[in-house]
Amino acid sequence: MADYYSVLGVERDATEEEIKRAYRKMSRKYHPDLAGPQFEEKFKEVNTAYEVLSDPEKRRMFDMGVDPNDPRGGAGYGGGQPFGGFDMGDVFGQFFDAFGGGTGNGPIPRSQPGRDQLEELTIDLRTAVFGAEQHLKFSTYGTCQNCEGTGSEHEEPPITCPTCHGSGYTQKVVRTLLGQMMTSVPCETCQGHGNIFQHPCTQCQGSGRVRTERDVVIPVPGGVQNDSRLRVPGQGEAGECNGQPGDLYVDITVRKDERFTRQGDDLHCWIRVPMTWAVLGHAMEIDSFDGKQQLDIPAGTQPEQTVEIKNLGMTKLNDKDQRGNLIVHINVQIPTKLSDSERSLMEQFAQQQKDEKPVRQSSQPATPQKRGFFSKIKDALG
């Protein structure tokens, strides 16, 4: 039984969020379209591990020593079927195949669905606020234009395979414990399709698709979160011989902004204002994603106080008509060097505040109500 925790690189007590984050990292690392086809099995292993560990019931079974994906029901750990978990169905299937029973599935259709594709897209915070269409360029399999996806050079229909006569399989002698037997194997002439092209397309060699560069418009919704994954139906790999295309999955990374930080549906920013503005109050302009906005700093503003501007935050993902708020954090700049006239004025001001209650020692941080702005000014002046 595989250790799914080791596959994702997490501890056994990992949280759901840690498992989800590790899966996204590993799926990007080992996706065959990004890392190469040699990692296809590893990619499947990562998906299997996440399927188990993201499901509370399956994870509980796994922690008890039972693999919920084992068709034998965990027979390797003392439970499950007779014969030590040996699949007798496989034995009987091979036995009947040996007598010309075949696989029972018939020839393999040439039209096959395309695989899903995973790509990454980095956007700025403004795009995350309002949403926008973004162009994403990537390499994938597209429909062959030379044969229009049919696989035939002259769009001729395939003919019946002369080797297997349309069955897709041929008989082969194999050695078994019971001696030499006949078994069915995919036909080497038609690769199990039961038919062949007289003139395969020279561009796609009969597959109906070729490697190409694609430019897809991604509709990014307003309010999208960092590390979100968007699904764009039908924009993955083209299927073989006009098979149904796969889907495109896009992992979104929101680039850090120099002016704003996102917290939930709200945007936060920090400004530094002169001491006199905080004491007397002041009206000023600040930037927002909606343009310049007036900010009224109330008189007596305390350091680290916030002012909230409604409906200038993130668009809410589930309700595009609603937005969060813009939270402005105010840092008051207290001067450290004063001229003689400034110091004289501040001493006069401090003298008028002599009746203010002294700051008391406390085991907890002083709140603005207990220790006001003017007390901090006097502390700065010594």
Rank of each mutant, 00 (worst) to 15 (best):
F349Q: 09
H268M: 10
R115N: 15
F86E: 05
C269A: 12
Q171D: 12
Y50W: 15
C190F: 12
T170P: 04
T253Y: 12
S362V: 00
P157A: 10
C164N: 01
Q302V: 13
F197S: 05
A14M: 02
L125N: 13
G222T: 02
G73A: 02
C201L: 01
V129G: 06
S375N: 11
G223Y: 09
K42D: 06
D97G: 01
K29I: 11
I334H: 06
I196Y: 03
D379W: 03
S207Q: 12
G93E: 12
G313S: 03
L177M: 13
K256E: 15
L34E: 10
F373P: 00
R211L: 09
G281T: 00
T176I: 01
A238P: 03
C241L: 05
I327D: 03
I327N: 04
D87F: 04
D296R: 15
G104N: 02
M314C: 04
A2D: 12
V216I: 14
D257H: 15
G102E: 10
D321A: 13
T143S: 02
K320Q: 15
M88W: 06
P335S: 07
D247T: 07
L177Y: 12
M61S: 05
Q117T: 15
D287F: 15
V173F: 07
G223M: 06
F39G: 05
D319I: 07
Q364K: 11
D124F: 08
Q203N: 14
K20R: 11
V307G: 03
G80R: 02
D287K: 14
T253C: 08
S111V: 02
L267M: 06
F92R: 10
A299L: 01
E41H: 11
T253L: 11
H135K: 15
F95R: 07
V359W: 01
T212I: 07
D290A: 11
F62Q: 03
G73W: 02
D124N: 15
D319E: 08
E347T: 09
Q294F: 11
K357N: 00
P233Q: 06
